[in-house]
Computed example of a mutant assay.
Amino acid sequence: MSDLANIIKTLQDRFEGKVPTDLDAIFQFDVDGKVLNLTVKDGDYSLKEGANPDAGVTFITDMGTLQEMINGETDGMTAFMSGKLRTEGDMSLAMKLGQLLGG
């Protein structure tokens, strides 16, 4: 299984039964040049490979940092402050994903 496939599986496990019904957003991840998007709407989610032009925020990082964030070994703010994570787009939306991963 590829690293990206492992990320998708881990995200699916983390989100199962925990997606808020009032969140309607598209998050995008650019990980070592590979793009993955997460659409959250009406208490459900979908993960797909590839770019989504409607993404509200894009997280740009490397595979190791993303894995650490998803596994709870580091948080987005720490990764951002250390220069391992960049964001483009809506920062308040970025924080909502952080809350979802932390929950």
Results as ranks from 00 to 15, higher is better:
residue 60 I to D: 05
residue 59 F to G: 11
residue 97 L to P: 05
residue 37 N to H: 14
residue 16 E to Q: 01
residue 45 Y to D: 02
residue 78 T to C: 07
residue 100 L to F: 04
residue 55 A to I: 15
residue 10 T to R: 00
residue 20 P to I: 05
residue 48 K to C: 07
residue 65 T to L: 02
residue 38 L to M: 06
residue 43 G to V: 03
residue 41 K to W: 03
residue 78 T to F: 12
residue 49 E to A: 12
residue 93 L to G: 12
residue 3 D to G: 05
residue 30 D to W: 10
residue 16 E to M: 01
residue 79 A to K: 03
residue 58 T to Q: 12
residue 90 D to L: 10
residue 19 V to W: 01
residue 91 M to L: 15
residue 31 V to Q: 10
residue 97 L to A: 11
residue 41 K to A: 06
residue 24 D to A: 08
residue 97 L to K: 09
residue 17 G to K: 01
residue 19 V to C: 00
residue 15 F to R: 03
residue 94 A to Y: 11
residue 96 K to S: 02
residue 49 E to Y: 11
residue 96 K to N: 05
residue 35 V to W: 06
residue 83 G to A: 02
residue 42 D to H: 04
residue 80 F to P: 00
residue 42 D to R: 07
residue 72 G to H: 12
residue 46 S to C: 06
residue 14 R to Q: 06
residue 68 E to N: 08
residue 93 L to N: 12
residue 1 M to T: 08
residue 53 P to S: 14
residue 32 D to F: 11
residue 101 L to P: 08
residue 27 F to K: 06
residue 60 I to W: 01
residue 54 D to I: 10
residue 65 T to Y: 12
residue 9 K to N: 12
residue 35 V to E: 03
residue 88 E to D: 15
residue 13 D to G: 13
residue 71 N to D: 03
residue 34 K to L: 03
residue 9 K to D: 13
residue 70 I to C: 01
residue 87 T to C: 05
residue 64 G to Y: 09
residue 69 M to I: 15
residue 99 Q to E: 15
residue 15 F to K: 01
residue 18 K to R: 05
residue 90 D to K: 11
residue 41 K to Y: 02
residue 42 D to L: 02
residue 25 A to M: 09
residue 34 K to I: 04
residue 37 N to Y: 14
residue 50 G to M: 02
residue 97 L to C: 08
residue 75 D to N: 10
residue 86 R to L: 07
residue 57 V to M: 13
residue 75 D to V: 04
residue 75 D to M: 04
residue 51 A to I: 14
residue 92 S to M: 15
residue 54 D to G: 15
residue 100 L to Q: 03
residue 10 T to K: 06
residue 89 G to D: 13
residue 29 F to I: 07
residue 44 D to W: 01
residue 37 N to A: 04
residue 54 D to Q: 15
residue 19 V to S: 00
residue 9 K to A: 14
residue 97 L to Q: 07
residue 68 E to T: 09
residue 38 L to F: 06
residue 16 E to C: 00
residue 83 G to D: 09
residue 39 T to W: 03
residue 82 S to I: 05
residue 85 L to K: 11
residue 100 L to S: 03
residue 9 K to V: 15
residue 32 D to E: 14
residue 95 M to N: 08
residue 31 V to N: 01
residue 41 K to I: 05
residue 83 G to T: 09
residue 84 K to H: 11
residue 55 A to W: 13
residue 3 D to I: 11
residue 23 L to T: 00
residue 56 G to V: 12
residue 9 K to I: 14
residue 59 F to D: 00
residue 53 P to N: 14
residue 18 K to G: 04
residue 5 A to Y: 08
residue 2 S to N: 05
residue 51 A to N: 11
residue 11 L to S: 07
residue 89 G to W: 13
residue 64 G to K: 15
residue 57 V to C: 14
residue 34 K to T: 05
residue 16 E to N: 04
residue 63 M to Y: 12
residue 23 L to P: 00
residue 64 G to W: 08
residue 62 D to P: 09
residue 82 S to G: 08
residue 76 G to D: 03
residue 46 S to M: 12
